[in-house]
């Protein structure tokens, strides 16, 4: 899996293209490669309850009361059912 900056816990989003690295204070592009200090952010694509992912990044969430489709890039930092794969 290609790890991007917005997969990192130290990344503070600014917009669809960039954010701030909390460790360095620098502006970084989302799509540039994460560095050695990378720390995984909770996202559906990293969760055990994310299954049946299709090519467009949409799969199924089986972790909540009712199963439903979900997309892998969705942040899960506020999800109590998040379980890292």
């Amino acid at each position: 899996m290609n790890i991007k900056h917005n997969d990192c816990l130290h990344f503070s989003n600014i917009d669809a293209a960039k954010g701030i690295c909390r460790l360095t204070g620098n502006i970084v592009e989302i799509d540039s490669d994460a560095c050695a200090s990378y720390d995984k952010k909770a996202k559906c694509k990293f969760c055990k309850n994310f299954t049946e992912e299709s090519t467009d990044g949409i799969g199924t969430c089986v972790g909540l009361k009712v199963n439903d489709w979900v997309y892998g890039e969705l942040n899960a930092v506020t999800c109590s059912s998040y379980e890292e794969k």
Binding site: S12, R22, G25
Partner: peptide, 10 residues
């Protein structure tokens, strides 16, 4: 509202 990812800029 409960699910919005919080983000505080430095």
């Amino acid at each position: 509202f409960s699910r919005i990812t919080p983000n505080i800029l430095p």
